[in-house]
Design a protein around this nucleic acid. Structure first.
Lengths: 211, 211
DNA sequence: CCAATATATGCCGGTTAGGCATAGTTCTAT
DNA sequence: ATAGAACTATGCCTAACCGGCATATATTGG
């Protein structure tokens, strides 16, 4: 099908996969997943294998990507994808649309903290400590990958975004640390609440029950 | 079915909805959505209406929540849900489990920036500016809601988490501002790349084409 | 040389979001 | 006073999406 001016309708993940291809290399589905874990993951989750493979099939059926089967020796082949001219155009058109969908944040750690009224304070502390350390590990990974990206001026925007990610995880780490310092005071305050008893009791009962 | 010690298997959203009920009030599905927009949203997306209603049905079928139909005047009724003792126990047991699922972040703004090599620099600047302002608006809302939560010591953990959210959106705003200051340098650097031409050309062509 | 790990792809079931439909209710502005 | 807008309240359907599982072959290290 020839290029028409309308931007094809794709889910965000579809654009992300096409974006991965837009750097110009010919990649297999497996390569794309690793690529995604390398860069995309720090700010846009990382699509699952199954998602990547099905998006690739859709991109190809829309003419935004094309593939060829690379056979080495004899039988075993892998499918290598590359972006088409139409794909480049579509991607540019998509990025030029004004609408940017809102940031999705699902923060399991904060969900647990928010349910502090049914938890043990020590457990909250443990979760937060773990999250702080995890954030620092992510920061370091972003830093390493950013340094990797800085060798090539064609990756200037990747480098920019990874610098952002480095700060993101540093901030995340610092907020966890700060929250740790506020936790005791919160627990104390909560226990002055008359309603605290019942919830507290339930958690206590559970512990007895499981022991 | 009677309480067994095993924690029932629920998706995170199910626990979040049960968590909303765990504050002790009797609420309709609609109330829950508003409640979620008021607190949950700042750190854990906000489940859609359909999701909330179907989770409520599941919670009830699992015995973790119960409902009664409130009729006013005559016919029109709404279903009011409350948490059961078993629900309280299950929630406490769930929060006490080690595993916390990883933070999900899907940052559409950074996705666009990452694709800077197919975009117009002015457009990137516009997106980023908008995001900075949006973050500040979210910060203010979190601040307002935190102040609302501070009146009741039973909401101490909600207040704690909303304080975190306030900082989160302030940090988000500041990172956007910082990135704005780095954008020109990145664009300049990118244009020194020999590969920049082709991508740039594609975007240019598109603009001509649409004009 | 065998085991472990990596490459490579796909299916399936369950979770989730978002749009749409519906219907009664309360508020608001002319 | 009343039309229309906005809010309350619930549910259905489609498409998106993840994670687990299954299945190969390929490479690497002990």
């Amino acid at each position: 099908m020839p290029s028409d001016d309308a931007i094809p309708s794709l889910p965000p993940t579809g654009w992300a996969v096409l974006g991965l291809l837009s750097f110009g290399e010919e990649l297999s589905g497996y390569d794309l997943k690793r690529w995604a874990d390398w860069s995309l993951r720090f700010f846009y989750w990382s699509p699952s294998f199954s998602q990547i493979y099905s998006e690739l099939r859709r991109l190809e059926s829309n003419g935004l990507a094309a593939s060829r089967i690379e056979t080495r020796d004899d039988v075993r082949g892998k499918r290598m994808y590359h972006i088409t001219d139409e794909g480049q155009r579509a991607l540019a058109a998509w990025t030029a649309t004004e609408h940017v969908d809102p940031v999705v944040l699902k923060h399991g750690v904060m969900l647990r903290l928010w349910l502090g009224h049914v938890s043990e304070p020590e457990h909250l502390r443990a979760i937060l400590t773990e999250h702080r350390d995890q954030s620092e590990r992510m920061r370091v990974r972003a830093e390493v990958d950013r340094e990797g990206a800085s060798v090539e001026p064609g990756w200037a925007y990747t480098e920019l975004v990874l610098r952002w990610a480095e700060r993101y995880y540093a901030d995340e780490r610092d907020r966890a640390e700060l929250m740790l310092s506020e936790l005791d005071e919160t627990t104390r305050l909560f226990q002055t609440s008359p309603a605290a008893d019942s919830a507290r009791r339930t958690a206590e009962e559970l512990r007895q029950h499981r022991a």
